[in-house]
C-alpha cells in the first residue's frame, strides 16, 4: 500500500472516529446559544461562534455523524443496485442488457440535483435516512455502467464456461464466479458513490431542502449563508465545514486511486 492510500485511510479513520464520539467530546451543545456573538476563533471557541453565539467547533463535531451515515447508507444501497443492474446486464447480454443499459444511461444523463431538490422538498419530512434513500436512487447508475463493461469481459472467460460445463446454475455463476473477480471495481464504485452521496447531502442541506433539525456540515453552511456570514467577514463560520468536506472527499478519492492502481497494473507500474 503506498503513501497516498494510507493517507486516505488515515483521514477516513479520523472522521469515522469523530462520527462515533463527536457528540461526547463536543465542548458545547451545538444548538445552544451563547453570549459570544459572532466571535472569531479563540481558546474558548476553537472555530469561533455564530451570530447567536453557537459554538461552531461543536457543530462540526456533532455534524460529522450525519455526513458519514448518509455516505455509508448510500454507498451500500447504491452499490447493491449497481451490482444488481450492471452485473445482470453484462452477464445476460441481449435484450436484457439493452434494456438495463438504457435504464442506467437515462439515470446518468438526467440532471440529478434539480430532481432530488424537487423530491426532497416534496417529502413531508426530509430526515437523514430518507434523504440517503433518495440519493441512492440516483447514485447507482455510474457504478452499474462500469460493472457491466467488466462483467462482459469476464463472461467469455474460460472459467465461467467451465463452471457452466460443470453444471453450475446461472445465478451461482454470477454470484460466486463472476462477482468475486469484480471486488476491486465494486470497491472503487462504493467509494465513488460515498463521495457523490456526501457531496449531494451537503448540497441539499446548504440549499435548505433537508430538515435542519439534525446537524451536518451542510446545515452549518446553510446558516452561515442565510445569516450573511460572508458580508460580515465571518470566514470562520463557513471555512471549517468546507475544509472538512474537501478533506473527506480527498481521502476517499485517494483510497480510490489505491484501488485503481491495485486493479490496473499499468497505472501501478507508472507509480513505481
Amino acid at each position: 500500500m503506498n503513501f497516498k492510500t494510507r493517507l486516505g485511510l488515515g483521514i477516513l479513520g479520523f472522521f469515522t472516529l469523530i462520527a462515533v464520539v463527536g457528540e461526547w467530546i463536543a465542548p458545547y451543545d451545538p444548538s445552544a446559544m451563547g453570549d459570544d456573538l459572532l466571535s472569531p476563533p479563540s481558546g474558548a471557541h476553537w472555530f469561533g461562534t455564530t451570530m447567536t453565539g453557537q459554538d461552531i467547533f461543536s457543530q462540526v463535531l456533532v455534524g460529522t455523524r450525519g455526513v458519514m451515515v448518509v455516505g455509508l447508507v448510500c454507498g451500500v444501497l447504491a452499490t447493491f443496485l449497481s451490482i444488481l443492474v450492471g452485473v445482470t446486464a453484462g452477464f445476460l447480454g441481449g435484450a436484457a442488457d439493452e434494456a438495463l443499459s438504457m435504464l442506467s444511461n437515462v439515470f446518468l444523463v438526467i440532471p440529478a440535483l434539480p430532481l432530488i431538490i424537487i423530491v426532497a422538498s416534496m417529502l413531508p419530512s426530509a430526515d437523514t435516512v430518507l434523504i440517503a434513500a433518495v440519493i441512492s436512487l440516483t447514485a447507482w447508475a455510474w457504478g452499474a455502467r462500469v460493472l457491466r463493461a467488466q462483467t462482459m469481459s469476464l463472461r467469455r472467460r474460460d472459467f465461467v464456461e467451465a463452471a457452466r460445463a460443470s453444471g453450475e446454475r446461472t445465478w451461482r455463476i454470477i454470484v460466486f464466479e463472476v462477482l468475486p473477480n469484480l471486488t476491486a471495481v465494486i470497491a472503487s464504485g462504493f467509494v465513488g458513490t460515498v463521495i457523490f452521496a456526501v457531496m449531494l447531502q451537503i448540497t441539499l442541506s446548504f440549499v435548505g431542502v433537508v430538515s435542519l433539525s439534525t446537524w451536518n456540515w451542510g446545515t452549518i453552511l446553510f446558516w452561515a449563508q442565510s445569516n450573511q456570514a460572508l458580508g460580515q467577514g465571518a470566514w470562520w463560520w463557513f471555512v471549517p465545514a468546507g475544509l472538512c468536506i474537501a478533506l473527506l472527499g480527498t481521502a476517499l478519492a485517494l483510497i480510490n486511486f489505491g484501488i485503481d492502481e491495485y486493479a490496473n497494473p499499468r497505472l501501478r507500474k507508472v507509480r513505481a
Binding site: 474537501a246 472527499g249 478519492a253 486511486f257
Partner: peptide, 14 residues
Amino acid sequence: TFLSSIPYFWLGLI
C-alpha cells in the same frame, strides 16, 4: 484531487 473534492458552492463562498 483536493480541488475536485471541494464543493462548487463552497469554493464560490471563498
